[in-house]
Design a protein around this nucleic acid. Structure first.
Lengths: 370, 370
DNA sequence: CCCTTTAATGCAACCGATTGCAATGCTTTA
DNA sequence: TAAAGCATTGCAATCGGTTGCATTAAAGGG
């Protein structure tokens, strides 16, 4: 009986030397500590300790074991480690849509930090749907993530599920769309100030009837952004006309809802002369609709809105935007989450980081010609 | 000694009823089969079998167990399952950049299929760097993914690592940028035909000197796309001028490399009158550069290029694009990967799916006025 | 020379679930 | 009435790694 017939036909790395004798017939199976122990005539505990450089193991055996491990390209099985250590070294991220530039930039930020700390990122998207969000939360937590970074979906207004998870001890960090009732770290843009400055800019450009199209009224960002709008109007002693404030319950993900509110605004007896668009998707959809209707920006309507895509500078007219520091938000959220995960004792001092947005004025809102 | 002091202080779900008595002090720990067994005075095997509806367990105990499990909201620990079953129910996805619309659409497609089949998707990005790609591959495989969907980075031309993984039995599906030498499923756009038709369109519009800016010459997509360009020129009996063919080794991720080749093209003695842009990022960068230089499109230079963003229709001039069926690519790639993962026997019949791109002609390439 | 100390290694339990193989007790049949 | 059959349930090994607690043997001390 030679060296190879000893081994079971299905197992691959087991009795083999460092040379690959595997092929597509067999499952991808890595070498284990047991293989090393068997090959070297030692116990698994000795091997384990040697690989972790324990003082209890003699230098000679350590070297022997480490050399052999390197030779067969041994990697500890993370699944086994997770089971033992009760952590998965992975964090979940839930956003409404990956394809949204803002979110993909945030994800980049999260990834950069997570990666640096040996954490894995599981990215999911709710597509603004409550059911999907519930399903994903269930899924993510049953998949045992160590923590969660989330921007809640537009539709959601019942947070009992999330609250329960939090109470059970799952570390959570909110960003962008936060849940006030849950007491944990939050990273947001200074939404109030961003919209305040954007509205101010329009007012300085002689706009008299400034309309807004907001996301779902439930969302924290909607409330904050509307507050900024109102603050600016108040400052200019203009009264607030509720007919100029419109909402898109699905955050603009459904084209028709945007078309509907734009039409409503355009058919008002006293038409608006400006629009502040309070969500990324709503901004591009509205811009597209206005263009299709051959409405001149900024002459007919001055437009400024939230958006994080570089492409908006290529639009015609080049679009004025409120741009959020998305990458930094991701970094900060990830760092705060890792702090939570790795803190030995209960954290009670929660931070609310509000990062400054950037207002980029381009053609679509500058009415020097009016 | 009452019901609660019996339990260890650190463990949470253990001796508790369905009501949460956990809080932020304690780690998030779910109920286990052992808890159910203990609570009901049964063995773990009975509980396990009951939950999986085994015929061996009496209906009475089954009901008792299932009711209690539902009551305490029991979920099997996926980590333990993974260890036992040697699979993680998660697949890795490696793309060059998540923020690229094409890739985020592909990811959407992958997710939709993976999700439906109970698989988890771990998304990673190489940012076109070989080192990052190697690191991620190492990381992903050490994290025990069940399979991999990958579009290789522009920089990479050594595939031994990937080849080894494949030979060891890791199921891999390539999409977009494929590796010819590795024999497995591949999902691509019909790149040759797409560029052929785009070039043809320019030729029909009387363009005489059509330049191209391609991605890294190593990439499969570059070769296929250039072949389409050449096929069209040949058909129109035009000879191929190598000075009109430029490459961006980093796929346009570095702005300067695009600026450099655009400048080279614009300072040629015999200037090009059209540009075909063979990669998404290169398309938008070039468009932006041309706009900045106040070059009229299509009058001075007709432009068409690969891009999957909806935004291109809002550009001025509206940009003509070759759009790839990204979502479907993702779906198909994921389905093929799941087939590989779940097939009992070795797969030897590998598919090469080539999906038709869509050519969307807009203002930037239509020279009726010339 | 025997006893204690110390260094080096192995045994076995554990993490949470699954599963082949008993073991138990009850009913049925010859 | 004993043997066989069957329905239920439990024991224990397993997945791959970690770790507290032996165990062993060699070295040092009295």
């Amino acid at each position: 009986m030679d060296l190879f017939t000893q081994s079971l036909p299905v197992s691959c790395a087991l009795s083999l030397s460092s040379h690959e004798r595997c092929n597509a017939y067999m499952k991808f199976e890595a070498a284990t500590i047991k293989d090393i122990a068997k090959a070297l005539g030692l116990s698994t505990s000795t091997v384990s300790r040697a690989l972790r450089d324990s003082y209890e193991i003699s230098e000679a055996t350590k070297k022997k074991i480490k050399d052999y491990a390197a030779q067969i390209n041994y990697r500890p099985n993370p699944v086994a480690l997770s089971l033992k250590e009760k952590r998965t070294l992975s964090i979940g991220v839930l956003v409404s849509e990956i394809a949204n530039t803002f979110f993909s930039q945030v994800i980049n930020g999260i990834e950069s930090i997570a990666y640096k700390n040996g954490y894995n990122v599981i990215i999911t998207q709710s597509k603004e749907s409550v059911e999907r969000e519930e399903m994903i939360l269930d899924y993510l937590t049953s998949r045992s993530i160590d923590g969660l970074i989330i921007s809640v979906s537009a539709e959601t207004n019942d947070f009992t599920n999330l609250k329960q998870l939090h109470e059970k001890g799952l570390p959570i960090v909110f960003f962008d769309r936060v849940v006030e009732e849950i007491n944990t770290h939050k990273v947001v843009t200074d939404n109030l100030d961003g919209v305040y400055r954007a509205t101010q800019h329009l007012l300085q450009n002689q706009c008299k009837r400034i309309s807004v199209i907001a996301n779902n009224a439930n969302l924290s960002i909607t409330k904050e952004r509307l507050a900024g709008y109102k603050k600016a109007l108040n400052e200019y002693k203009m009264n607030i006309d509720e007919s100029l404030i419109k909402y898109c319950d699905h955050g603009g993900l459904i084209v028709e809802e945007v078309e509907k509110v734009v039409d409503e605004l355009l058919t008002l007896k006293k038409k608006p002369d400006a629009m502040v668009l309070l969500a990324d998707k709503i901004t591009t959809e509205t811009f597209s609709i206005l263009k299709k209707k051959n409405i001149n920006m900024p002459q007919d309507i001055a437009v400024i809105g939230f958006n994080n895509s570089k492409y908006t500078s290529l639009f015609s007219p080049a679009l004025s935007v409120i741009s959020q520091p998305a990458f930094e938000m991701g970094e900060q959220a990830a760092q705060l989450l890792l702090n939570l995960i790795e803190s030995k004792r209960a954290v009670t001092d929660f931070k609310l980081e509000a990062l400054a947005p950037e207002i980029i004025i381009r053609e679509s809102s500058q009415i020097s010609s009016r």
